[in-house]
């Protein structure tokens, strides 16, 4: 068994092999792999014995289940109204400048991906962003530089 097959089998052991198990399994794969490859979706379908198209259909509905390879750290900047009013664009520009990539892209070293997302539920502390599951609020370009630098150092890169 390859690592993906092992992972999916383990996830199915925990979450079951029913249709209702799909979302937790998909989430488990994304947590580990950062995205859903075609292979992993086919493998999930085989593991719980449903058509691969059903797995694909479910997976592609949800914005946090990416079908494109993502970086180790996925940065999701909230673009909904309050964050947008409170300086989301400056935050985004700062991130793009630091990582030298465009919105939606992944750094060549596969560490960071920048995305925009809809309301994160931090409107009273706008603007906000997620880095993986971690929340950062009341962002300013300075604060973003600090946060991102600490992530870059984590990877042994300054």
């Amino acid at each position: 068994m390859n690592p993906i097959q092992t992972l999916i089998k383990e996830l199915a052991d925990v979450h079951g092999r029913r249709r209702e198990s799909i979302l937790p399994i998909l989430q488990g794969v994304v947590e580990q792999e950062k995205y859903l490859s075609e292979d992993s979706m086919v493998e999930i379908a085989r593991e719980i014995d449903i058509p691969a198209s059903d797995v694909y259909g479910t997976a592609t509905f949800y914005s946090f289940l990416e079908a494109k390879k993502m970086g180790k750290y996925v940065i999701r900047v909230c673009k909904t109204i309050t964050c947008s009013m409170k300086g989301k664009n400056q935050v985004l520009l700062t991130i793009q400048e630091m990582l030298k990539i465009k919105l939606g892209d992944t750094t060549p070293d596969k560490r960071f991906t920048i995305l925009e997302t809809n309301c994160l539920g931090w409107c009273h502390k706008a603007p906000a962003m997620l880095i993986n599951d971690e929340v950062y609020t009341e962002l300013t370009p300075e604060k973003v530089r600090e946060i991102l630098s600490s992530y870059m150092k984590k990877n042994g890169q300054i």
Binding site: L23, P24, L26, Q27, F61, Y62, S63, F64, T117, C119
Partner: peptide
């Protein structure tokens, strides 16, 4: 707990 995955 059942986790959602980003869908309003």
């Amino acid at each position: 707990i059942f986790m959602g995955s980003g869908a309003y």
